[in-house]
């Protein structure tokens, strides 16, 4: 399994990666991008099985990234890991094609339960 982590914060990419490993995804291959534009390039280059993206990022934010993917016909499973955890943002995310939203701050258990519920193998 290949997982793309998109976040403008190197620190947060590292934290997400660490939590994924502890949540049982230690055997996955991880690739990274620091905004939506880089994310689009990584999707084409790497063909990830799952995308975890921040929402607020420079250049191209997470919502624009998701909408661009879907408008291009790419249906790679996509989840947000974001500080934008309000109910309205969760609805907007799901209506745009995200399968889950993990709000920061999170725990290893949050990742495990959310990915299990989303059917991510």
């Amino acid at each position: 399994m290949k997982i793309l982590i998109v976040d403008d914060s190197k620190a947060m990419r590292m934290i997400v990666l660490r939590h994924l490993r502890q949540a049982g995804y230690g055997d996955a291959d991880f690739v990274e991008a620091s905004n939506g534009l880089e994310g689009l390039a990584q999707v084409k280059a790497e063909g990830p099985d799952l995308i975890l993206s921040d929402w607020n990022m420079p250049e191209m934010n997470g919502l624009e990234f998701l909408r661009k993917l879907r408008s291009d016909g790419d249906d790679t499973p996509f989840g947000f890991v974001t500080s934008e955890g309000t109910p309205d943002m969760q609805i907007l995310a799901r209506d745009s094609g995200a399968i889950f939203v993990i709000a920061k701050p999170f725990t290893v258990e949050t990742f495990r339960e959310t990915l299990d519920a989303a059917g991510v193998a």
């Binding site: 914060s9 607020n56 500080s83 934008e84 955890g85 309000t86 709000a103 701050p105």
Partner: peptide, 9 residues
């Protein structure tokens, strides 16, 4: 970012 996101929520 995380703390202010929590305030927003």
């Amino acid at each position: 970012n995380i703390v202010a996101g929590g305030v927003k929520r």
